[in-house]
Structures are given as C-alpha cells and as structure tokens.
Design a protein around this nucleic acid. Sequence first.
DNA 1: AAAAGTGGTAACCTTAAAGTAACAAATGAA
DNA 2: TTCATTTGTTACTTTAAGGTTACCACTTTT
Lengths: 104, 104
Amino acid sequence: MKNNLNHAYCPAIETMALIGGRWKVIILHVLSKQARRFGEINVRVPSISRKVLTEQLRELEADGLISRKQYKELPPRVEYALTEYGQSLCPLLAYMAAWHKEKV
Amino acid sequence: MKNNLNHAYCPAIETMALIGGRWKVIILHVLSKQARRFGEINVRVPSISRKVLTEQLRELEADGLISRKQYKELPPRVEYALTEYGQSLCPLLAYMAAWHKEKV
DNA sequence: AAAAGTGGTAACCTTAAAGTAACAAATGAA
DNA sequence: TTCATTTGTTACTTTAAGGTTACCACTTTT
C-alpha cells in the first residue's frame, strides 16, 4: 500500500504552469520590448502557426500576463502588450537568460 | 516576402529547454532536498509512470543536471542526485516559487 | 471587378507525448 | 519451489498538441 503523503509540493510548478507552454517565453520576450500587433508577433516567433499563436495568446491573456486591445479599424488591428503582472515576470526571464549564459 | 531577420532570439528559451519538460521541475525539486532512489522519486512525483520517469531522468542526466549512481546489489539500487550544475538551478527555482507566492 | 490586407475561426490530419500492461534478471525469504 | 523486491525495457494504445488548408469580414487599392 503506497503512502500518498510522500507527494512533493513544488511551488515553482505554479509559475511553470504560466510560462511553460511551448511558445510562451518567446512571446513574452517579444512583448517585453514593446507592444505588438498579432502579425508582428507572428513574424518574430519563428515557425509558429497562426492557430497556435492565437491559442497561446488567449492563454496568456486568461492568465493575466498580457492584454489585448482591439481597434475598430479596417483591416483589423489588434495590439498585445504585457500587463503589469506580465512585466513582473521580466526579471525572472532575465535570470533564466543569465543563468544559461553563465553556465554554458 | 516575409523578412526572416525579424526572428527574435530569446536566451531564456535555452534554460526552458532544460527544465521545461512536463516533470523536470518537480523532479529537480525532489532531488534538491536529498539524493533519492528511483522508487523514492516515483512515489514523490504524483502520478508519473515509471516509463516517463525513466525518460525524464535520462534527459536530465544527458543535460548534466543530475547524476545516476548504480550499486551492484540485488534487488538493484540506483541513486539520483543533483550535479553541481543542477544545484546551480536551485536559486532559479526559488525565484520562481517566490514570484508565484508574491504575485498571487 | 478583383485583389490585398489583417486577425482570426473551423474542420481536418499528423505527430509527439504519455499511459498501460507484461516481462526481465538475480537473489533472499517464505 | 515460488514469491517478492527493484529498476528498468518493450510493445502497444490513447491522448494532447500542433500543423494545414480554406474561409470570413470590410475597406482600400489596382
């Protein structure tokens, strides 16, 4: 009989749930420089399909990391930007980048 | 004609490649406390199958984050531990945990 | 009149990841 | 003699993720 009380709880997991998606970190990185339109993100994130980009953006938005602002123009214009919450992730991304740079 | 030169390079991605796997962070977290045998990890990582645990451990080992030490005993005994390289990730995991704690 | 431009969506297909179950190997214990 | 133990592996199936193509809406440009 296994003892389930041994299960480890790792709080870092919660953060990974937000940024662990296949393209999330690149998207956040792109938006960290400046707000971008859908098409601009699409060009800057290599080889992502529009479908998947839409999905990832929706998830980031649902998690409160980015905002979506739609202008009433034609052809349509939609701008994505980091929220304050999303911006608070930047030091973490910088830490990750620095760790890699230092250790390799 | 799309301009491919717009592709963003995000160094944090490289780090994510190491710890972004479905179970990597939990495994690292478990091993950060102390070295563990295969079965001990299996119990502490909720609902992971032996097959997938093996795969993830092999990848972590190939990336140099953990070490695998096999004792010549029967029944077999194998112990996994963080390498020095793997230990250097701990502050990052702590950062991730702290960010989540503070922001939610 | 038709095409371009933008930000999607819907339907469908393929690929990658994960799960399941059975088996192995050597020894000691029942 | 058979079972239990431990760390896997192998073969097979299921699920999730991602890709592909076609299409829409509305206006301006060719």
